[in-house]
Design a protein around this nucleic acid. Structure first.
Length: 558
DNA sequence: CTGGGGTCCT
DNA sequence: AGGACCC
């Protein structure tokens, strides 16, 4: 394959940085973005005080009394910032978005075009463009393929980048734990107790005794394919050499749109209807947003989760069989997506279709028992028609989407009531008298949680080694990639102060260095095994989203 | 006292 | 349709 130049750009502590910009907070101020009772992301001053992602807010404040907490339930600003960053990056080549805060860019063509005019530094320019467009700092990895770009990006952050020369690829990946390779998840690696690993593939991989890339490499292709199957084994073997032929797959409009909510319990169709009254308008609105390219002629999927079925915390799924039939974690069924109606009538049609699916698939009520016990409900739109086919019918919604959405800003009283009731429902609070919704009392809730508790502690303990690796300070990596003069690069965009924190080196020198590093000529000091391994999985931003609360905020116009 | 979305593979 | 993986 022709040599490529790939950039992985990762927006630093994404939600938190967006909020700091919006609120004009100084960089040194410790800040955390919360959802419900959890810190979902925080900036580096907060981290240095011991605040971590997914920490309870009470614990975070105890560790860092100065911590500024910002509610981040409304994802709208994050979606917008992500879109703006993506737009800015399109100038550099095809862009593949991963979550809201990561982007692969294939900069090969642009790099070749610029090469004749001298050295060109893709990571430096891409990060400067994102900063110019959004004000956000980012970290990047620059390499010949997606695998190495992704791994390199985690070596230096925030507001830094790492180029990884192809000549170093093999030595670079060798000491990494297998789990560090993208695509090798908890079920494929042996970092979790085997009793949680149902896949025979994982057991087989574990049986090979491989925990690091170097060991897997020695096991050989045949062994990996026996363990993982032909395709996955081949891919893993390639990754173990630092190779990755996977192209940057340009992200277009989404292939599916899902809205979902989880809750303690829904025991009645009435309760589900209440949830649907929130989910359906949200799905319809999301579809209207996307409709310019696909419209409403999709398939509607309805997915739900039975309480007590197999989960990560409850692998065997053993529980009260009266409300928790044995079976998969989530059940999904689909039906034709109602099309043609817009606005609230469209939402009502979606809700009605979903309710019909649920009624047809959930066990009918029994006299003395709750008919079911669902803990999650999702609506999704998939299998979109090709753009050409839509213009005629379903797209009416889309054509007027702007106006329609604006017109919905003030939600109807019914919608507001449904939203408020739904919020209460999620929180476990009682609704007014005569409510048809079955709610759990606080006592029931507690009992329920105790039954869910799993002996031996939580994920953190089980994956302690992994967590430890994730917490490693990127700058402990030591002298390796990139060279110090690259870190000193100023923005080549000419924007004053774009990288004011960085000191030495001209932009030209930095460009030459970076260009050399991802190209053929560069030769960097190699990190030692112990330096690289812990850092390789570090520093990823969590992108936990709480769209239920987001919906409420948006609906209530705040 | 983890989510809510996504995509891809089987 | 169900998982496994990613953020």
């Amino acid at each position: 394959m022709k040599a490529r130049a790939i950039v992985l750009l990762d927006l630093d502590y994404f939600y938190c940085q967006v909020e700091m910009l919006r609120n004009g907070l100084p960089a040194e101020r410790p800040v955390a973005v919360t959802q419900k009772f959890l810190v979902v992301t925080c900036n580096y001053p907060a981290r240095s005080s011991g605040v971590a992602k997914l920490m309870r807010t009470t614990e975070a404040v105890a560790r860092c009394p100065d911590l500024r907490l910002i509610a981040g339930e409304d994802l709208t600003p994050y979606r917008e910032a992500s879109d703006e960053a993506m737009q800015a990056l399109r100038a550099f080549g095809p862009v593949q978005r991963v979550g809201l805060d990561e982007f692969f860019i294939d900069v090969t063509a642009v790099a070749e075009a610029r090469a004749s005019a001298g050295a060109w530094a893709p990571g430096t320019h891409a990060r400067a463009a994102v900063r110019r467009a959004t004000g956000l700092t980012s970290s990047a990895g620059v390499a010949h393929n997606k695998l190495l770009a992704k791994l390199a990006a985690s070596l230096h952050k925030p507001d830094a980048q790492t180029a990884l020369p192809a000549s170093e690829a093999s030595a670079f990946v060798a000491p990494l734990p297998l789990r560090a390779l993208p695509g090798v998840g908890a079920r494929s690696a042996n970092c979790v107790p085997l009793r949680r690993v149902g896949a025979r593939a994982a057991a087989a991989l574990h049986a090979t005794g491989c925990t690091t890339v170097a060991e897997a490499r020695e096991a050989g292709l045949a062994a990996l394919q026996r363990a993982l199957g032909a395709a996955a084994g081949r891919r893993l073997a390639a990754q173990c050499e630092g190779a990755c032929a996977e192209p940057v797959k340009e992200s277009g409009p989404p292939l599916s749109v899902t809205v979902e909510d989880s809750f303690k319990a829904a025991h009645s169709v009435e309760a589900l209807r209440l949830v649907l009254q929130v989910l359906a308008p949200d799905l319809r609105r999301r579809l209207a947003d996307e409709a310019a390219s696909r419209g409403a002629s999709a398939v509607e999927g309805v997915r739900w989760r039975h309480h007590g079925t197999r989960t990560m915390q409850n692998p065997t799924g053993e529980r009260d069989a009266s409300v928790a039939p044995r079976g998969p974690l989530c059940v999904s069924r689909s039906c034709a997506m109602p099309s043609g109606a817009s606005g609230e009538r469209g939402a009502a049609a979606i809700a009605a279709a979903a309710e019909a699916v649920l009624r047809a698939n959930l066990r009918p009520p029994q006299p003395s028992r709750p008919p079911f016990h669902l803990t999650l409900l999702a609506l999704s739109a998939t299998k979109f028609a090709r753009a050409g086919g839509l213009q005629a019918g379903g797209l009416r919604d889309a054509a007027g989407s702007r106006g329609a959405i604006a017109g919905e800003k003030g939600a109807s009283p019914q919608a507001k009531q449904a939203a408020a009731a739904h919020r209460d429902f999620r929180s476990g609070y009682q609704l007014g008298q005569g409510s048809p919704v079955v709610l759990m009392s606080k006592a029931e809730e507690r009992r329920d949680w105790s039954e869910w508790a799993w002996e031996g502690g939580g994920e953190e303990e089980l994956c302690g080694g992994d967590e430890e690796a994730g917490g490693a300070e990127p700058h402990d990596v030591g002298p390796c990639f990139p060279s110090p003069r690259e870190l000193g690069a100023r923005s080549p965009s000419g924007e004053a102060g774009a990288n004011e924190a960085q000191e030495a080196g001209s932009a030209e020198a930095a460009e030459a260095a970076e260009a050399a590093d991802w190209g053929l000529a560069g030769r960097n000091h190699l990190p030692t095994r112990s330096e690289v391994a812990p850092a390789a999985r570090g520093g990823r931003e969590s992108a936990i989203e709480d769209t239920a609360t987001t919906r409420e905020c948006r609906r209530h116009g705040s």
